[in-house]
Design a protein around this nucleic acid. Sequence first.
DNA 1: ATGGTGGCTTTGCCA
Length: 269
Amino acid sequence: MRLLTWNINSVRLRLPLLERLAHEVNPDVICLQETKVEDHLFPKDAIAELGFPHQAFAGQKSYNGVAVLSKRPIVTSRVQNWCGRTDCRHLIVSLDGGVELHNIYIPAGGDLPDPEANDKFAHKLSFLEELAQWYGSAYASSDKLILVGDFNVAPLENDVWSHKQMQKIISHTPGEVLRLTRFQDSLGFIDAPRHFVPPDLKLYTWWSYRAADWAASDRGRRLDHVWVTPPLKNALAGSLVVREARGWPQPSDHVPLIVDFYSDEMFSR
DNA sequence: ATGGTGGCTTTGCCA
């Protein structure tokens, strides 16, 4: 079972890239963030024609928005809200075999890493705290959960191009990393890509649009994640960052992140 | 130290 997560930064603008991705890497389930489209305008027919007839989506005009596109049936779906807002950042679907898939778009947090002066950063920190609290109380480590999405935090030293220079840059500040780690520890989630790529190697899923030459400077960050609970550890088969997608025409600033699962391990009850 | 780009629809907001 090939699972793919991608902050697509407008699903309507990048439908041709979604088609290319579907053909070139053949995922079974695609989780998108920043779809930036209200539900009545979601391109569901075009996406069904790409081979993903089973869909769940929750979007709003211009900002945010999450979607799950699947070749296999989606049993149930629901939206979760955080921080007293209804901003389309968290979609939960259940698949076969009691597996729940959570697609999350954590707030980016603005530029100034001071929650007193920057409401967007305060929102991000609260969001992370609410997630940690909720997962720890609403679920157990023995549940089969997969969490994916744009978490907007690069937790490890080699998840950024310069650990030293990124200390005061939102996405890699100690406060965010601490809260993300608490969230990860809430159910003992396993960081699936790092299960395959050791922590001394650089691993990125995002490169800024503002670089003159993103590939040459290679100042990336690992903002996109796939986590699984312990019962799914033995189902992990591999992981891949589709780096070349950053060089496609009219790219997203994020690239797709793939995790492959052994289906028999994943869906057995 | 600064400003750089992109998407959506504002002439600014968000990333």
